[in-house]
Amino acid sequence: MKNILAVSLLFSTFLAFGQQKMADHYKIYNTATGKTVTIDDIVADMASANVLFFGEEHNDTTAHYMELTILKTLIAKYPARVALSMEMFETDTQPVVNEYLKGLIREKNFITDARAWPNYKDYRPLVELAKASNINLIAANAPARYTNMVTRMGLSGLDKLDATGKSHLPPLPIDTAAGKYYQKFETIMGGHSSMPGMQIYQSQNLWDATMAWSIAQYLKVHPGIKIFQMNGGFHSEEKLGAVAQLKKYSPGLRVLNIASLSGTDINQPDWSKYTNLADYIILTDFKAAN
């Protein structure tokens, strides 16, 4: 108990210091009203929601601070009713994640065996907060070897996996979302719709579907839990991608999403770009180093 209280105090001190330091570097807007809001407002909105998606830019340090602050606030507002879900860990590493959160293995082994991202330092505070707060962390993403397989062989390649391999994925076949999501993907790909491009799009759908399935299955076993899902922005913007896949697996869920964007004018949003992007947008003045 003393250790938990000490860690909690450490996070509270860190967040208080961070809030003073970061306050001038971001603004949060409710896109329905165009007005600025606070993290407390978003967390209060979760009273009637099941899942909060945070679409980040992976190198934005301000966004990582915001994620930590949101998770801390969710835990305080809904004690014993929060779980963290992350794109940054893959489904087959869930036993390793669980072992670390329970204090059974060293952090060194966790980082290696859970295949933590190269910038794990950016996500470590969230993992440590989950550990200290005794909340679950869902390793939500599809194993990279399978997304790579789809990029090379198409979704039909997954049929060749054995039962163990398939157990790390959603039920096959994966729904390849058409329409607006594909159009967005084509735009990013430069308008190329060749077969390799289509297979890359199929791997994107596998990525989305696995994260959605991971959340849906967790909520089936743990009803009433608030899920805080972290992923790259494209996966959840406009409630497409992983959000749309989640709605197929669990139609009754209420989902909120945040889009975090860096290098923008935080005081004068271009609403022509942001209105339909998310329920909330976080604009930061972070600019990646060249």
Rank of each mutant, 00 (worst) to 15 (best):
I200L: 14
A278D: 00
L84N: 03
S8R: 13
Y100T: 03
I215W: 07
R115P: 04
A114L: 05
S262C: 08
V221Q: 15
T187G: 08
P196Y: 03
D45E: 07
L126I: 13
T147S: 11
F110L: 00
S133V: 11
N257A: 02
L74Y: 06
S8M: 14
K247A: 15
T93C: 06
A63W: 02
A44L: 13
L172S: 01
S48D: 09
M230D: 12
S250I: 03
L277A: 04
F286S: 06
P143Q: 04
A140W: 00
Y218A: 09
R115L: 10
P95H: 07
L155S: 15
T73P: 01
T31C: 10
M198L: 12
L277Y: 12
D285T: 13
R124P: 00
S193N: 11
G191W: 10
I215M: 04
A209N: 01
L172P: 06
Q202A: 03
A63C: 12
D24L: 10
M153L: 12
P251H: 13
L240D: 04
T147A: 05
Y26F: 12
Q217W: 05
D41G: 00
R106P: 04
L84G: 10
M149S: 07
E87Y: 02
L172G: 02
H168M: 14
F53K: 01
T33S: 08
L206Y: 06
E87N: 05
L219E: 13
E107F: 02
P118E: 05
T147E: 01
E128C: 02
Q245N: 11
Y123E: 10
S262N: 14
N276A: 10
I225N: 00
F54G: 10
D40H: 05
A212L: 06
Y274H: 07
G18A: 13
N109H: 03
S260I: 11
T33M: 11
